[in-house]
Design a binder for these strands. Structure first.
Ligand SMILES: [Zn+2]
Ligand SMILES: [Zn+2]
Ligand SMILES: [Zn+2]
Ligand SMILES: [Zn+2]
Lengths: 149, 149
DNA sequence: AATAAAATGTTATGTTATAACATAACCTAT
DNA sequence: ATAGGTTATGTTATAACATAACATTTTATT
């Protein structure tokens, strides 16, 4: 079984466990992100589904589907790029830690990495010290990939 | 002299040193950000200049002016919010370190804090290990301020 | 089959950002 | 002072990203 099928199967199982349904369109959108080697915008996903599956999913629906996939922790929104990426750990058993994304500003390739617990704790401390409250400790960092650099 | 005047005077001096000009419109946009207690979008700055100075600056010009102010390190763009904020250190003598922005997702108030050197080094190492190259180590974190929490 | 809930479609509009070209304001050198 | 180059701003159009409101279809439950 190839990687895509494996990921989709995991995703399906995960949704089932949560009492949610991974419909065909949701599968198509998720496939687009899993297959892509870079982050995609909602509108790029519309084009992808049209091209790959001859499925014309309106942008509005893609946004809703992305919200759903995010809520199922299958997809991450990259706020600094206004793009979306499949979680790199869908098929992993381990719990999903605080995600950190290195995003190539030129070509939108993304690496989902983990930073050390101590660094996370330091960052959290600065937030607490400033009397703010963390919503999500997700970090997104503008980079250039090896290719583009 | 109040805070706003002091900041503008510093900004003017800083531009002069760099052979750049802080024109009236640039001053107006910068004033908007300095006076605001929260991050503003380009379009909100259009409205501000209209209200505060009866200056109708087209959105296109505000974007150009924001680019200029950013290049002079007087303003930061908050990529996760698509908004802009005056640098908190315009009147400071010390060099500007790597900034970390805590952004209230509800009301857009922003705190510009400094990250410890050790944290920065760890982040840089993570990036290097992933074979990526840092563009700007600026960190932006979605939070809730004490007010909104 | 009737009903309710969930998913998707449709249309309209709001928000953020840039491209391309025109004009105005401002130096600087003769 | 003025001609010519540079910088700043104006104007118009459009691209790109995102949400609101309401209608229809599909699915699950009784
Ligand atoms: Zn992930
Ligand atoms: Zn790249
Ligand atoms: Zn700053
Ligand atoms: Zn707030």
């Amino acid at each position: 079984m190839n990687k895509l099928d494996a990921v989709i199967k995991h995703a399906e199982q995960q949704c089932k466990t949560n009492g949610a349904r991974l419909t065909d369109k949701r599968k198509q959108v998720l496939s687009g992100l899993v297959q892509s080697n870079k982050a995609l915008s909602a509108y790029e996903l519309v084009d992808y589904c049209e091209t790959a599956f001859s499925a014309r999913i309106p942008a509005m629906s893609v946004y809703r589907i992305l919200d759903f996939l995010e809520s199922e922790h299958l997809v991450h929104k990259l706020n600094i790029a206004n793009k979306y990426v499949a979680c790199a750990h869908i098929s992993c058993d381990h719990a999903h830690g605080t995600p950190q994304f290195l995003i190539c500003k030129k070509c939108s390739t993304v690496k989902e990495v983990s930073i050390s617990q101590s660094t996370i704790l330091e960052l959290k401390q600065t937030v607490t010290d400033a009397d703010y409250q963390l919503i999500s400790p997700q970090l997104e960092i503008n980079c250039l990939c090896a290719q583009c650099a």
